[in-house]
Write a protein that binds this DNA or RNA. Sequence first.
RNA 1: GCUCAGGUGGCGAAAUCGGUAGACGCGGCGGGCUUAAACCCCGCUCCCGGUGACGGGGUCCGGGUUCGAGUCCCGGCCUGAGCACCA
Length: 844
Amino acid sequence: MTASNTQQPRTGDVPPYDPTAVEQKWQARWRERGTNHTDLAGGERPFYALMMFPYPSAEGLHVGNLFAFTGNDIYGRFQRLQGHTVFEPLGYDAFGIHSENYALKVGEHPMRLIPRNVANFQRQLERAGLMVDWRYAVDTTDPHYYKWTQWVFLQLYKQGLAYKKTAAVNWCPSCKTVLANEQVIAGECERCGSTVEQRELEQWFFRISAYAERLLDNLDWLDWSETTKTAQRNWIGRSEGARLTFLAPVHGAVAPDADAELAEEHPAVMSAHRIVVFTTRPDTVFGATYLVLAPEHPLVDALTTDAQRDAVSAYRERVLHQDLVSRKVVGDKEKTGVFTGSYAVNPATNALVPIWIADYVLMEYGTGAIMAVPGHDERDFEFAQKFDLPIVRVVAAENEDADTPLAAAYTENEGGRLVASGEFDGLSVAEGKQAITQWLAERGAAEPQVNYRLHDWCISRQRYWGPPIPVLYCERCGTVPVPEEQLPVVLPDIEDFRPDDTGVSPLARHEEWYYTDCPTCGGRARRETDVSDTFLDSAWYFLRYPSARRDDVPFDAELTRKWLPVNSYIGGNEHAVLHLLYARFITMVLHDAGLLEFEEPFTRFRAHGLIIREGAKMSKSRGNVVNPDEYMSAWGADAFRTYLMVLGPYEQGGDFRDSGISGVKRFLDRLWTSVYEAREQGAGSREQGADRGVLRKLHQTIRKVGEDIPRLSYNTAIAAMMEYMNVLRAGERQVHVAEVKPLVQLVAPFAPHVAEELWEALGGATSVFDAGWPEFDPALAAEETVQLAVQVNGRLRGTISVSPDVTQEGAYAAAMAEPQIAKFVTGEPKKIVFVKGRLLNIVV
RNA sequence: GCUCAGGUGGCGAAAUCGGUAGACGCGGCGGGCUUAAACCCCGCUCCCGGUGACGGGGUCCGGGUUCGAGUCCCGGCCUGAGCACCA
């Protein structure tokens, strides 16, 4: 990395451009004058420009953070130049397992560690020159903040959307602690390498699944990056199908509702277990040759015969003790399973089919049981082959012989016809789905069903570093929510915050905190010791910013009405599903509680790209991490910001390399020089006519930059300004004030400090950000002549210089006057294609 | 495996609606300024042939649609990200 902080001016009276001095001067001025303070109550045309707040890691600000924030800052500053009152807040997402693990590693308490990290972040962020109003910063670990996070929990509890149930967690028997899925590597603990087990714990959940349909439907009208919407749609995972009932005979009791005809064939069905399966392919029911239940399915015990009991128990034991990750990791994992010994009746064929259990069927999805159709499902096919179960074809492609044995599952949805399906033969898959579901429904064996992949949100963490879940367990009253007026439930400052082998949070060890009085009866009560998921902290922070200085309400009604929903939200696509979905969910819940007028928090969302280096993600282990401080010292924050924006399309990211930054710095140097040289000349010394071309380019640039910034096409906006600079200084011509002053305004969102300095040098009385956007004059931007491409048979044969509104006839005549073009036109043209102002194609 | 994004000069990239491919920048080459260097300024820079005007080829590969395809359609290859037995 090489750089110079100063440069020698070309002519005598241009002061040197020292970025460090300029940036310090303006940051100090902004502070003194409150330039970045938003008038939340009085400001007109409010514009809320939100960026995802960072987790303040010990390593300090990452270039990725800065790339994200700069992009948002440019957008926000641009909106301000357009006359909006812009609110651009920022804060810290400082709770969570990241911070806690780091604290454990270095052996320092997070309550001491985090404030230091935050201070360091703050220093780096201020240096970058963001238009952030720091008076409204939030910190999720501040009791004044998490008091309201706990309040949000209580709102869900009140509505019956928070509930407790038993769920499995990963457990490391050697570290004696609960592990997050990310901490389990190939079935082993990331820290000590022991084999991870599964443990059942009581945990708190939010009923987000009840909102699945709304969360999905609203996506249709949200102005969001398409990629993000697709990711959410996939995550919600709507699938349409049917629940089918299979009866499994039982000895003894009598089932009164059993089908008479069926009973004749299988008398035992008169008393039967009802096994309900979910399928998206009811059309293939004639090919269902066995059933599979999840090992945890409640009917497994009842269905297991004595002969199979040992095998089934052993299998269940093994599956239920495996860690959560390995169970679901597929890859080359072979199918496993055990036969229960029982059979069920296929409601379509009345044939008896064996009932198996296998870990590839998950209890959380559908009904925890499937009908296996090996002919038309890859997983079932693999399983049937391994265990030698019958594979029957019930769908065939148009040109396929229905009797050909299947070499693999045929899963095509379109183009196939039903075969071996009785009266339904010949129907398409879509028709079959409909007809068979209806047929079975009439006999009480089917009902249409929509399923979602989206699971309820487990918010419990058996950890220390988070907001305690505000619930008490009273010996007399049972579960009691902490009354709102008693919030916050403060996280105690305990030295011993390490997890231990009890499987409950370290908070449980601190009796003075753990035991308290029941707010209802005054008796003895225990506190909930789980803390809530970090994603809950960030699921509502955007509501808090405008009201961050109010301690009596989570969010002020009037400010919220004025500033929300958020006008523009920018962030990484790594949060496309979890964070953005949770934030939408919480907003909907608060809306339904009558606390918010809107149900979608972010009107517009754009995902920015990722900054990589030398083709790889930056990471400490690769040693390719860029420290923003070094670059800002060497080149200045302005050049660094602008460089980050020029290195690729903002929504795509780019490859960081040192080489390109000098070009950006050179551009700012040239701007600096131009301004001082122009000032020397004074205003109004412009010769008429001679500057027409420059003026035209200026107005074209104003238009281009004004179009590019709203669509986050920052790299092309900068290129356009560089082009203008090349025209401005071409052949060392004298630059005039009127030519360069608007350029300073255009540059301002990208390089705010130097723009302020130059604006002041040109006599600007206010901050450049209160000076508005330069006026665009379409008449001045219009070209007098255009280069029209002339093709013969689609091949470029030359260009002609014509007026932009030349007609086809005029263009043709002009083209034929060029011998270079005319020589390719032999005889009368068969056809002429003319695109006004662009091209003429002569087909001969 | 599935979903999404992408594949264009030596490099980062541009081409917004199917209309002159390579804007802008880095690097490289040549020149000016300078005692000299740095800085700065000017010119050239997709490939092949030609001194040149110019001609031919060229946007991952193979087909197609069109007067015209980087852009649209079909098939395939490669890279990156996310999800992962969701019936």
